[in-house]
Amino acid sequence: MTTALATRPETPAAVPEPPVRRRRAAGVRRELVGVLFLLPALVIFGLFSWWPILRGLLISFQQTNLVDPATWVGLENFRALTEDPLVGTAVQNTLLFVGLGLLIGFPAPLILAAVMSTIRRGAGVYRVLVYLPVVIPPVVAILLWKWFYDPGSGLFNTLLGQIGLGPYPWLQSSDTAMLSLVLESTWAGMGGAVLIYLAAMTGIPAELYEAAETDGASMWKRIWHIMLPQLRPVIGLLLLLQLLSTVQVFTEPYIFTQGGPDNSTVTVLLLIFRYAFQDGEYGQAAALSVLLAIVLAVLSAIYLRLTRSWSTS
């Protein structure tokens, strides 16, 4: 009896515990609230992101004119891509844009930020000036640069002519057209990266520099051994973001050159655009989009992996 009493649980009469059914009901209600609050976002994502993605995937295996019912064609659209010589050209051109972007567009904001971080007076003015191109609508910026590049009366050839250089063909030659596109997009896009680098630089403890200076380290050594290692996560992040955006380059070749001269600026996205909106080959456009999406997914996976390892290191 004693044992029985001793092992008897606390009497429920004193602190009444809700019955299991009621607890479950409360839990379900809480979840329902969560789901209901989540639903608007789910509906929007579903309608405007996931459904188009799914539809794009389906269209890549179909032939359709978007009016009559689509017919399934298996891998025909992908096979057609292998037969189009422009696909290879577009991939090469896109890689060239990515490569030139890494060579020119990637170090430019880092260098600029390093220089700007040493400026004490009027730093705000420089930051505004550097960020200003980001605020200008891309189409306006490109039309402006189109005039800069004009071989006859353009700004660049006029200025270079003053010091006895040029005239250069810029967009008019297949040798220099892609470089011209990269120069504009670097100018237009580097403002954001400069500000991120500047913010990251202010986070580097000043003692590190002071200690290095005391040890007699030169400016290059301080950059190499302190600044760059400290900025590593930010550099990595911006590198991958740049890769993701440059692989999808479209606006520049579309407005500057429409892929010319001699197909030297036809990029993958411009080719997708041409398939869909010029040739009405929606299946082929979707197939190439799927392939591009796979490449972007791989890049994104690398990005996620790296950012995870950096955050844990």
């Binding site: 409360a26 209600r29 809480r30 329902l32 609230v33 209901l36 609050f37 639903l39 608007p40 509906v43 929007i44 309608l47």
Partner: peptide
Amino acid sequence: LSTRPIAVAAGLLAGLALTACSGLT
């Protein structure tokens, strides 16, 4: 306390659904 969020969420959702439907029809 527990029914109010449900009502708010349901109201929001209904409003959104109506807006979406009118825009998409």
